[in-house]
């Protein structure tokens, strides 16, 4: 029993995060002050949202490299909608953002499901297409803070019990998707379709369709994050969140999501994102150049995947009695 606990990926990661926080706080106690931790969490929320979506996609043996481009495109569209109709209530903005993101995710999903094109190729393509479309619709111009309506900018920053709405949305997403992944048929289908596609077919699960839903969820979360991103930073242009898709994949890998599919949890994605978020926020505090961040997250990915691989190594058959007793 103890062995099961110790090898559990999530607990290992919680340990790593606690250790990291202890190290930082030993020199800068202010870092673990509740207000600062709330700030770090809030800052990491977009990564958490996207990592949850990406985790689901990776579970089904796919990958979604278009999430950051989806985020940027949706963000640009809602910014332009806001500029054109400043009075439009935020609810409609949210509906547009989630709706458009979902649609973009469905495009990926359809190409993977109906045409059976490898997901890495599909999302590589849509990633560049989405970025290009942003340029076309915006004519390469920025939507700046002063053009956005106050309500548009205020929503993600509104403070509830010391945590901005952005952070609360991430918490809500974690709760909702924890339930979806463990307590719904679709949630278990994601695991089944990725863990053993052949068997899933026999169990009455349409693997392609399950992958389609994974991309749809990933797209919906990316769209939602698109609005939250542009309103929080109060700016929208072609290159926002450039390269962010790799941070998202990194968060998943660090969170113990297996790139081979079938293994991963919402908690893992959350912890992986937090690990990267804490490092990013801690670097300036401990007076290390922010330029170190990229190399550190790269190193963390490699260490994480090496540890995961060690834990998942296939064991050979134990035939000898002696060996059987010893184990």
């Amino acid at each position: 029993m103890l062995k099961r606990l110790v090898t559990s990926r999530e607990i290992l990661l919680v340990g790593a995060i606690v250790l990291l926080l202890m190290l930082i706080s030993s020199r800068f106690p202010g870092f673990i002050a509740p207000a600062n931790l709330a700030n770090v969490f809030n800052d990491t929320s977009p990564l958490i949202l996207l990592a949850i979506g990406q985790m689901i996609v990776i579970l089904t043996k796919c990958i979604d490299l278009s999430v950051a481009a989806n985020l940027a495109l949706t963000g640009m569209v809602v910014s332009m909608v806001n500029v054109a109709a400043p009075g439009l209530p935020i609810v409609f903005i949210l509906v547009i953002a989630i709706g458009l993101g979902t649609l973009l995710g469905m495009i990926n999903g359809i190409l993977v499901w109906k045409l059976a094109i490898p997901p890495i190729v599909v999302t590589l393509g849509t990633m560049t297409i989405f970025r290009g479309i942003i340029f076309v619709i915006s004519d390469g111009k920025w939507v700046n803070s002063h053009e956005m309506s106050p309500a548009f900018k205020a929503f993600p920053r509104a403070d509830i019990l010391g945590l901005p709405v952005l952070g609360w949305i991430a918490i809500l997403a974690v709760i909702i998707f924890s339930v979806v992944m463990t307590r719904t048929t679709l949630g278990r289908a994601f695991y089944a379709a990725g863990g053993n596609p052949h068997a899933a077919t026999y169990a009455g699960i349409n693997v392609g369709k399950t992958q389609f839903w994974a991309f749809t969820i990933s797209g919906a979360l990316a769209g939602l994050t698109g609005y939250l991103w542009v309103s929080r930073f109060a700016v929208s242009y072609v290159d926002i969140a450039g390269g962010f898709e790799l941070d998202v994949v990194a968060a998943c890998v660090i969170g113990g999501v297996s790139i081979m599919g079938g293994i991963g949890t919402v908690a893992g994605a959350l912890l992986g994102a937090l690990f990267l978020g804490i490092i990013k926020n801690a670097l300036p505090v401990v007076d290390i150049s922010p330029f170190w961040q990229l190399a550190i997250s790269g190193g963390a990915i490699i260490v994480a995947v090496a540890l995961n691989a060690q834990a998942n190594r296939e064991k050979g058959r134990i035939i000898l009695k002696r060996a059987e007793q010893a184990s």
Partner: peptide, 8 residues
């Protein structure tokens, strides 16, 4: 990983 590491 090494993509981030090398450029990092």
């Amino acid at each position: 990983g090494t993509m981030s590491l090398f450029r990092g």
